[in-house]
Amino acid sequence: MSADSGPGPGPGPGLDPEPGPGICARRVVIVTGGGRGLGRAHARAYAAEGARVVVNDLGAGLDGSGASGDPAQGVVEEIRAAGGEAIAHYGDIATPDGAASLVTTALETYGRLDTLVNNAGFLRDRMLVNLDEDDWDAVVRVHLKGHFLPLKHAAAHWRTECKAGREPRACVVNTSSGAGLSGSVGQGNYSAAKAAILGLTLVASAELAAYGVRVNAIAPAARTRMTERTFADTMAAPVDGGFDAMAPENVSPLVVWLGSEASAGVTGRVFEAEAGRITVMEGWRPGPSADKGARWGAAEAGEAALKLLSRAEPPQPVYGAR
């Protein structure tokens, strides 16, 4: 077992217990950033559907500082108390060693890996003119590199399995954001990283299809440490006991389905998930076009561009724009 993994019982390598109920029975699922917010909701939802869950969380603060094993281990204990199986991993998945040990923990504890949910992240919000390079690097590192490295190590395992004649039925669920789809004022670093995750998702879905791996992304809206301050009014829980539209648990059913065999054939897709609504995002597609058949002059190109813009759909508004 990895030195980064928490204590706890679990079947040894190769052991496959009798399946429990649920669409993820027998599956082994990694959830990064699984100690709080959306990650905690996803981990608990997977366990409720029969999965064995590796709960990764560095236990850092909202700005990425510090570390604690309490969040990950707390979710593991919640899952076990409900009769599920889980183990904690406390490593930094934005480092090669941390990402490698995360995959190793799943394989050494449960003998397999079926689903990777990339969810870990934090915020360091600033307007662009006040955004320090360190704050840019830190946010891009945890969100983008923290997606790439676990994906890389999981994909290497699945490729080996495929070449050995054991084609996986594996899934990856990446986490983008409305900020990555439309931009968000004061979140240039976060928006850029979340937009890049969408590009990574598309490339990974194409490259890994040959190995039996499907890769999709979600853009969730829910109440978490990262949103309850920035969007305090819209994220507040209802006081009358009605439907809690911003509860992170509302997003998890889609994430669980995407990480199960029930979503076979679905790959390279992006979904928005908020409250009771699921939306398939259609991304960049060619709009109005003009072809002169020769090089444009600058003024001529501008005139053509203005005509095309008059026929084009307007862009989605940037969050926070006035």
Rank of each mutant, 00 (worst) to 15 (best):
P71E: 07
G69M: 12
L102H: 03
A43W: 05
A81W: 13
G34D: 04
A100S: 13
V28K: 02
E77N: 15
R126K: 15
N56F: 01
V117S: 04
A72W: 05
Y90S: 02
A100R: 14
E77L: 13
I93Y: 04
L131S: 08
G59K: 00
I93F: 08
L128V: 15
V139T: 14
E133L: 15
D125L: 11
A51E: 01
D135K: 06
Y46D: 06
A41V: 05
A82T: 08
V53M: 07
G33D: 02
D135R: 08
G66C: 13
D114A: 05
W136D: 07
G83C: 14
A47D: 05
V103F: 08
D57E: 10
A86S: 07
I79F: 12
G59Q: 05
T109Y: 09
V55N: 04
A41M: 10
L58E: 01
Y46G: 02
D63F: 10
T105L: 07
T104P: 01
A72S: 06
L62I: 15
E49V: 11
R52W: 15
V75F: 01
G33P: 01
L38N: 01
V28H: 03
A106G: 03
A67T: 14
N130P: 05
A82H: 09
D97F: 09
V103Y: 07
G33A: 06
T32C: 08
G69H: 08
P71C: 09
T105G: 04
A94P: 01
E78P: 00
W136A: 10
M127G: 10
A106V: 04
A45T: 06
G83T: 10
G50S: 10
P71I: 08
A67C: 09
S65M: 12
G98R: 03
R141G: 08
D63P: 01
G98S: 10
D63C: 07
A81D: 15
V76E: 00
L113Y: 04
V117Y: 04
G83W: 13
I93P: 01
E108Y: 09
T95N: 10
E85K: 06
P96R: 15
F122H: 08
P96Y: 14
A45Y: 09
H89C: 11
E77I: 10
V117F: 08
S65W: 14
A45Q: 10
E85V: 14
S101E: 14
D97H: 12
W136K: 08
N118R: 03
A43R: 02
N130K: 15
E77G: 09
